[in-house]
Design a protein around this nucleic acid. Structure first.
Lengths: 109, 109
DNA sequence: TAAATTCATTGCAATATTACGATGAATTCT
DNA sequence: AGAATTCATCGTAATATTGCAATGAATTTA
């Protein structure tokens, strides 16, 4: 029914899924990469940089902001977006714990 | 229109998005965690372990298999699933490159 | 104050995802 | 061979996501 049954999974599993979902669209990946590349904030030109319509970019930014991965400061008539370094770090820890799992002794049948 | 415009992004960005999408559902996270935990393959009981209906689990397994993150071997009347260690490692490298980005000199406005 | 600029929000259409009942295919057991 | 077991596939319903035109809100500029 298109409705994820979150109640049957752990908080951690749901958290990993939520962060992953945020990275599950190339536009959001591109936005984040750009914010890292310029090492600071960006006021404007994200629409030109990414290549999607302005409302679409705005929507992607909103999702990233709701997750806490970026933050936006009003700067005159435009808005400055930047990585929320602290939250990014927390997210990274959670994701690394998940990704860094490894099988040492295991072998498949 | 619900249609991701992959053509306007780099291969890497699309790849990151695809892997992330796979992790974007708690059931798939749970499946992968379980496969790691038992350090080997699992034949059966995934449906009981996760708690969703059998066709639903089967569908999630299919997605993970298509991405190459797990592989399945027929074992009599059941099927053994396990992590594809080599591909998991490749995926991990790509995701770590993305997640490990950091801002050293940057500060927000 | 009026025009311009920048970004958010609304509304809508199209596609994707999630979930599961019913059914099918392959294998094992009796 | 016939029943049982295990998993995949099909079909379908419900919800989610993506994208953009139109519009609105806030600020700056002339």
């Amino acid at each position: 029914m298109g409705l994820t049954k979150t109640e049957m999974f752990t908080d951690l599993q749901n958290e990993i899924a939520l962060f992953s979902k945020a990275f599950g669209h190339p536009a959001r990946v591109a936005i984040l990469q750009h914010l890292f590349r310029i090492e600071g904030c960006i006021c404007g030109d994200l629409v030109e940089e990414i290549g999607l319509a302005q409302p679409t970019i705005s929507q992607h930014l909103k999702e990233l902001k709701q997750l806490g991965l970026i933050k936006g400061n009003v700067e005159g008539t435009s808005i400055c977006y930047c990585i929320d370094v602290e939250n990014w770090s927390k997210m990274k820890k959670i994701m690394l714990d998940f990704l860094d799992q490894d099988i040492t002794t295991g072998k498949c049948c």
